[in-house]
């Protein structure tokens, strides 16, 4: 589904990603872990199509297409979804109008018929309830005045509405209490259908208790320095990132 080869990325002449290799097959869940500043969020943003980054080497292929040739909205329409670490507050854009418009745009590009207003509302209500949100939320402005937890839930809600093929969750667990974390994870798990793939970017192993990954990769200074299965996450939690750093230093 997603095949990243030797990807190198700069921000303002500073090299952030120094040759990433990542292969995500349909239905797989990959966790990307790593200390602050290791390039985790950059990787997520580059896959989603943020324009501030300069790709200086390597390739990103998604469903057989060169991702770097596509604009952010084209990527979204082809099924790439990024759950933002810091969702943007947009006063004046009502949640319901926003969700209706992204739902019907996405249906249109998938060759499906637009839902009528009644069907749309019913669909949105189902998703809202699935994420454990209050329906009153639909009347508010997009992320405007939302708590950290509400914003993260809202990201998962949008994912549920758009039904992407590849979802990148950028620190979806940060700022969440345990209860909210469970609800968000349940939302994600409900969308695991054996076809949809996930890249879960996180600091902590905690989220991975609920969203169990197939692979865990450790990103350090712009490179994936260690890969393994879910037990790697537990090991990291126990030993900390210094363990990786020490191990790397020893091999040099």
């Amino acid at each position: 589904m997603l095949s990243i080869k030797d990807l190198k990325v700069n921000i303002e002449d500073k090299m952030i990603l120094k040759g990433i290799n990542l292969d995500v097959k349909p239905g797989e869940v990959h966790a990307i872990m790593g200390p602050n500043g290791s390039g985790k969020s950059t990787l997520g943003n580059v896959i989603a199509g943020k324009e501030d980054y300069e790709i200086t080497g390597g390739s990103m292929e998604y469903l057989g297409e060169d991702l770097s040739e596509l604009d952010v909205d084209e990527r979204a329409q082809k099924g790439v979804f990024l759950s933002f670490q810091y969702p943007v507050e947009i006063p004046g854009v009502s949640m319901s109008n926003f969700l209706k418009q992204i739902l019907n745009t996405s249906r249109k590009v998938r060759g499906l018929e637009e839902l009528n207003p009644m069907e749309t509302l019913k669909f949105l209500r189902e998703k809202v309830n699935m994420i454990g949100m209050n329906e009153q939320m639909l009347k508010r402005s997009l992320n405007d005045g939302f708590s950290g937890g509400e914003k993260k839930r809202n990201e998962i809600l949008q994912m549920a509405v758009l039904e992407p093929k590849l979802a990148i969750l950028d620190e979806t667990d940060s700022g969440l209490d345990i209860d909210a974390l469970k609800v968000v994870a349940e939302g994600v798990n409900a969308l695991r259908d054996g076809e949809r793939s996930f890249v879960v970017i996180t600091h902590y192993q905690r989220l991975l208790n609920y969203i169990v990954p197939d692979y865990v990769h450790v990103l350090h200074e712009g490179r994936i320095v260690k890969s393994g299965d879910k037990s790697l996450a537990l090991e990291l939690e126990e030993k900390g990132y210094d363990w990786i750093k020490d191990e790397l230093a020893a091999t040099v």
């Binding site: 952010v72 909205d73 745009t105």
Partner: peptide, 25 residues
């Protein structure tokens, strides 16, 4: 706000639709 435009586009809205949504809001 270009961050808001990017956010809306990342949900599949074209640049034009995203701009119109922000202006109307």
């Amino acid at each position: 706000d270009e961050d808001a435009v990017f956010y809306l586009r990342s949900r599949g809205l074209s640049r034009r639709d995203a701009m119109l949504m922000l202006q109307l809001a």
